[in-house]
Amino acid sequence: MSAVEERPAVRSRAAGGAVGWRAAATLPVWAEVKRQATRRRTQLALGFMVLLPVIILIAFEFGSNNSDNNDQNGGGAFGSLVDLATSGGLNFALFCLAVSAGFLLVVVVALFCGDPVASEASWGSLRYLLAIPVPRVRLLAVKLVVALAYSLLALLILTATGLLVGTLRYGWHPLGSTVAAAIPPGQGVLRLLAVVGYLAIILMVVAGLAFLLSTLTDAALGAVGGAVLLWILSSILDQITALGSIRVGLPTHYSDAWLGLLSTPPQVDDLVKGAIAAVCYATLFWSLAFWRFTRKDITS
């Protein structure tokens, strides 16, 4: 073991690095976590994930008096998610996820993944990190891992808060849906986690896109906004049925497939296809990001 630990140090001297410098030790993940944690936007985004379920809860409390007449007109089989939201903590958490999945989570993930490289570039600190030197691949890898971790954290915080707040207010009941039998709480938690997992996979596309843009521009806003815009564009194209089978290739086509997890047994076919699309897109975007960033001149 000791021999293994000796080697990098020896090599770094041989490669001409300063004493104590090792490529693999630069920009430790924890240092990047701290770098991002101190930023206001990180704190605000994560704070909002806590706040949102509370806001929804308050809204439900206000609306509970006059909701008698609007419960029968929910469109489609899943309009009932709203009606079921107050039936228990699990359903409430699911509702919070459902309303956030289309846009809020996209923005949050785009923020976490589109911002880190572009904002360092706009501050001018990127060139000093690269001059340390933090190898470019390592810099990107650490930034990406931390950005993904924060994105996942946001997703989990939203779910956990929704679950907690919903359970405190509405109690611990089975996960209900009108299309299938209510799912017992224990299994319901697993289903909820599976939904979170699937959303995380789908959002990898946003993460990939935002990260790619982040390496291409010095404007953090451009990277975040660009990713969100392209996501919306994909959603719009997906609405146009005239496009036929081309839609299947859109990254947003399977973004609602997690609803299949609510039936018994879960319908995972669309989830699998969605995951395939997401993995392909994310891999493509990330590869492009690395390919570009390791070759370009840093002009910031």
Binding site: G17, G124, L130, P133, V134, P135
Partner: peptide, 22 residues
Amino acid sequence: PGAPVLSRIGALVEGPGFLPHL
């Protein structure tokens, strides 16, 4: 890019670059 020997150079190029919130 990323040459280990860069670690033996200290640099200031094109003005300072700091995290404004720190």
